[in-house]
């Protein structure tokens, strides 16, 4: 180049932490002057190439599973509901049968009422068990 003074390449600045980016440390002016702040000199804008990074793992799914496990579990009360349905259905069957078959007499009415009362007690007990299971 005509014997002119060759511009020297700036001394690269290395950082022990490769993932750390310091815009002042990596830019050194050729003339040795103090580096100006990046915000005051648009020409100092540089391109930084970042190596492709692949993020693996299922942190989101794990988080959802942990939240699901930690959430309070609601009781299904299937046994209690089945027991209550059977007991109350039987009480209704006894009441209807008693009325249809023999309830047009005093004795028939009394027997049907007694049978219904006995089945109603079981129905009430199972309904209470179902209610307590649902509200616990």
């Amino acid at each position: 180049m005509g014997g002119g003074k060759e511009p020297t390449m700036p001394t690269p600045v290395s950082s022990p932490n490769s993932s750390y980016y310091d815009p002042y440390a990596q830019f050194t002016p050729v003339d040795g002057s103090e580096p100006a702040p990046a915000s005051s000199e648009p020409a100092a804008r540089r391109e930084v190439n970042v190596q492709p990074v692949m993020i693996t793992g299922e942190a989101g799914a794990k988080h959802l599973v942990q939240r699901h496990d930690a959430a309070p579990k609601l009781p299904d009360c299937l046994d209690e509901s089945a027991e209550a349905a059977l007991s109350c259905g039987k009480a209704g069957l006894v009441a209807a049968t008693g009325i249809l078959v023999s309830a047009t007499t005093v004795v028939g009415t009394a027997l049907a009422a007694a049978a219904t009362l006995a089945e109603g007690i079981a129905c009430g007990k199972e309904l209470r068990a179902y209610y307590e299971c649902k509200t616990q």
């Binding site: 309830a103 047009t104 005093v106 009415t109 049907a112 009422a113 219904t116 109603g120 007990k125």
Partner: peptide, 27 residues
Amino acid sequence: SAHKSTSRNAAIAVVGVAGTAGIAAGW
């Protein structure tokens, strides 16, 4: 008196009261 007839509605009312009382007692 054991075979004295009652009305169907009276029988339904008595049986209904008995069933309700049974459910309340069980509860």
